[in-house]
Nucleic acid binder design. Structure first.
Lengths: 162, 162
DNA sequence: CTTGTATTTGGAATAATATAACATTACAAG
DNA sequence: CTTGTAATGTTATATTATTCCAAATACAAG
């Protein structure tokens, strides 16, 4: 589980790779990565934070790729459905998947200060949630695991500024 | 961790107890359990499911306790803030706390078929999320843990009806 | 190439969820 | 009584999301 995403990295590279891997996956599965869909995943990859549907829509609108809410929501639904993006329930916002291709339950670390979102992989069947489900006879199909708090950089700022 | 809440229980009893324990806790902490607040926690306790703010507001309105959204949201904010209720992010809805008084991170089991919601206690600092946070140097302040799937009763129905 | 079918898109309207802002009331402390 | 704090009433608006219908496009089968 690699969740070191808060620290610096080669962003242009990770973004290009991200789009490429989504394109490959679409080709492999016979999915249509249409211009709007491609652009939305690009937008999401371009920032390590969760973006609202309307924020994405604003960008699409400025680029002439669509101006009505359904345009953004349809693209996001496609991306989420096929595992290329996730919805962060806590924020009613969306973020590119860090581990596309691998089936997983995303676990998010959300910085309340700077808004950065980092994804780790979780296994809800283990841990407290899985134990509770088993005890109750509940069958888990999907899980939401999200933590809000302070990322390393914002912790340092707090400590320094205080 | 008791998450057997999907099975039958003495509901009138659990509801009366719930209101009483909230009232006691308010008294102990010097919090005002005003009519609207009391009624909202009663409404939430009366059903083992998550209810939308506007659904609650409809009831309040019918009873002359307030008719505008802020009335419901303020009462819910109070209840959530003091741990008497929780918000289920996945559903944008609210539910009474099953373990009032004990400080905890709620973990929800949400039946997608019948809408029942059962709360278990989780310890996000352990498990995948805690491990990821530690590795990333992230400080968790709050966590959302929610699972969607089938409750025991709905699983039986599925199995029987198929 | 044409046809049939499914998918995708465009766009208007509206639903559902949530908050901002400000005036008013209640009540206890000084 | 005055002042401070908390709670309420109310209007308006912001934000997030979906429904619905029509038009365009993609793509495989013939």
């Amino acid at each position: 589980m690699n969740a070191l995403g808060f620290e610096k990295h080669d962003h242009a590279h990770c973004m290009a790779d991200g789009v490429a891997s989504v394109a490959e996956a679409c080709q492999a599965k016979g999915l249509q990565l249409t211009p709007v869909r491609r652009r939305v995943i690009e937008i999401l990859l371009s920032e390590h934070r969760a973006m609202g549907a309307y924020e994405i829509l604003d960008t699409l609108r400025a680029e002439g790729l669509g101006s009505q809410p359904p345009v953004a929501y349809r693209a996001l639904d496609f991306l989420v459905k096929h595992g290329f993006a996730h919805k962060v329930e806590r924020l009613n916002a969306f973020t590119a998947c860090t581990y596309p291709g691998e089936s997983h339950t995303p676990a998010f670390l959300i910085c309340r200060e700077c808004g950065a979102v980092v994804e780790a992989a979780a296994e809800p069947s283990k841990g407290d949630l899985g134990a509770a489900a088993e005890e109750a006879g509940f069958e888990i199909e999907q899980a939401v695991v999200e933590a809000e708090g302070l990322c390393p950089a914002c912790r340092r700022k707090k400590a320094g500024g205080a």
